[in-house]
Write a protein that binds this DNA or RNA. Structure first.
Lengths: 341, 341
DNA sequence: CTGTTAGCGCATTCAT
DNA sequence: ATGAATGCGCTAACAG
């Protein structure tokens, strides 16, 4: 089974390569019967036009790049779904690059995508450090941020208002009678999902007249195990009676905290209420369902693509600009109990 | 900022394009100082060689295609990780195509990947129906199956022995004193993960002297919600006392079943034991941890790539062949209780 | 060791 | 409406 090109088809159909190209891209521009001949020849030869050659010739591959820090984050799936969908609707494919949690590899991701002629890039999560920014500047193609932002350049960013969301979550707890609320925060040096959510928690506390007590907060890397550890440390410091609720900066950590509480004989929500953050699929799948604040991942993905596509169409490297704060939402499930007293 | 090609660099460095190409692909084949000149020129111009043009010229893109039925399956992440890793180790990139649960789109996936010159394809999950097989035959590039198999052609397949795994899971339950075990199965028409697991369950039952009772089994689509529904139907038929344990054909459905049980006042594992299948991340994150049978997703991914790469290197479209059954493993956590009587 | 030439497969002017 | 020629950016022979 040899290589069949546009040329082989042309010979078979007794026409020129150009004509074959035409029926491929604009069938109406060619005579009805020659068109049929060509189409038949293509079918008989099982011709597959080379997207590579086409790309070289046309100078664009109709793809957008998606740069993620690591596909192990459970949020990836939900984000990707939105992205792939609208990209498809606009005739674009998405080229995925996984940085595997390696900063350097993430940098490589940009050049990889560039070398593959993506029309634009969606950068996901992870703070935009200086080197990223420098890379992006030299790139010459539009870049939009999803679930993160850059404080230097006016890169378009799509995310939620993390401090307000954390504020609301904490307020939600307080409105139900909790005033000693522990927090399992993300790393404070993480500006996008660490410091912000901690800040929101703190603001709500003081706003509604509760005291911020340092012993009640600890930190983790957003994953299950560290959520467990952080909860353990808090418990060690303040004991089982030290708090009536805990707010975690991610669903995974919330689940880790719940496990830890269970092992210490504390039931959720009877003895302590727990709130998560993200509203991943798993939040619904656990029993009792995890009360959490939802980020509209899918919607964020969609908007990011649309913004990117717009910049691409407009033809320039600058995107629609600005930080777009999408609405979060508190999803009430079963891990929060109102204090009856 | 204009387009900088291999030619621009050549001019800037005062050499021929061919020389630039050489420092790109085999730096040692060029004089030390000219090489430096070229490298400097490349740096100054921020030259990014076009992977597309290179691909066209070399007739291969150094990528393998990954065809998944839908990225919403939580197992995707774990599989992808193994695949991307070893692909990278061999200098290959993986091109992802998501069929979005659409049979027709999955077919398109093959031609898409083919048109993008992938060296081979890993097809994931979903039964290999006739049209798939026909497509694969015409493709002219090696294809390996992960988490599924084909009963017609000797396509290489990497998966677990589902009937034995289900057998073992059921036996595990019986060894702990359970003999009225409900099953939340996958669709019986699904040959790879539906009928097989149900069969294993049934075999264990009769093998160890328990009766197969039809009222105790119901079906779902492997996802949470249907697991819930199936459990609900079983409960409606046999009542709360009808069984002491339930075996689900997926972790998601196990979690759905647990939710249903909880809503009927049944505690896990005190009142009824539950076993899942897959050992997704979530199995560890719920409390109590879900006892389940683990599929070595990551390992399967790695092997699939290696098999594919081998066929590619060998230069032909036939892969190492045969169905490779990888060992499963029962992961004991907290949802199964031994009956003490 | 380096420059020249000639494609890779397709799209796109121009002619006809 | 269709064919011939040219170029996309790069690699690979073959010279020198």
């Amino acid at each position: 089974m040899k290589k069949v090109t546009i040329r082989t088809v042309a010979n078979r159909a007794g026409v020129s390569p150009a004509t074959v190209s035409r029926v491929l891209n604009d069938p109406l521009k060619v005579g009805a019967d020659t068109r049929r001949k060509v189409q038949q020849a293509m079918a008989e030869l099982d011709f597959q036009p080379s997207a590579i050659a086409r790309g070289l010739s046309m100078q664009h591959m109709d793809t957008i790049g998606l740069l993620v820090p690591g596909i192990n984050g459970l949020f990836f799936n939900e984000l990707y779904q939105g992205i792939d969908e609208v990209a498809g609707e606009h005739g674009m494919k998405v080229l995925l690059f996984d940085a595997q949690l390696d900063h350097h590899r993430a940098l490589d991701g940009f050049t990889f995508l560039k070398q593959h002629h993506v029309a634009g890039i969606i950068f996901t999560s992870g703070s935009i450090t200086d080197d990223y920014q420098a890379m992006i500047d030299r790139l010459g193609i539009p870049v939009v941020l999803a679930l993160t932002h850059s404080r230097m350049r006016p890169l378009s960013a799509f995310r939620t208002d993390d401090v307000k969301a954390a504020f609301d979550a904490t307020a939600y707890l307080m409105a139900r009678g909790h005033n000693r609320i522990a927090m399992v925060s993300g790393p404070p040096e993480n500006e996008v999902a660490g410091a912000t959510r901690l800040q929101g928690y703190r603001q709500a506390l003081t706003r509604y007249g509760a005291e911020y007590v340092e012993e009640l907060v600890d930190f983790g890397d957003f994953h299950f195990h560290e959520g467990y550890r952080a909860m353990e440390r808090i418990l060690a410091r303040v004991g089982k009676e030290g708090f009536t609720a805990v707010f975690a900066a991610s669903d995974e950590m919330a689940l880790g905290a719940i496990r830890c509480l269970a092992e210490h004989g504390l039931r959720v929500p009877e003895d302590v209420s727990v709130m998560g953050y993200d509203n991943l699929y798993v939040a619904e799948m656990v029993t009792p369902g995890l009360t959490t604040v939802a980020q509209p991942f899918q919607h964020i993905g969609r908007l990011a693509v649309e913004c990117l596509l717009q910049a691409i169409a407009a033809g320039q490297t600058e995107t629609c600009g600005g930080i777009h704060l999408l609405p979060h939402q508190i999803i009430e499930r079963g891990t929060v109990k109102a204090l009856s007293q």
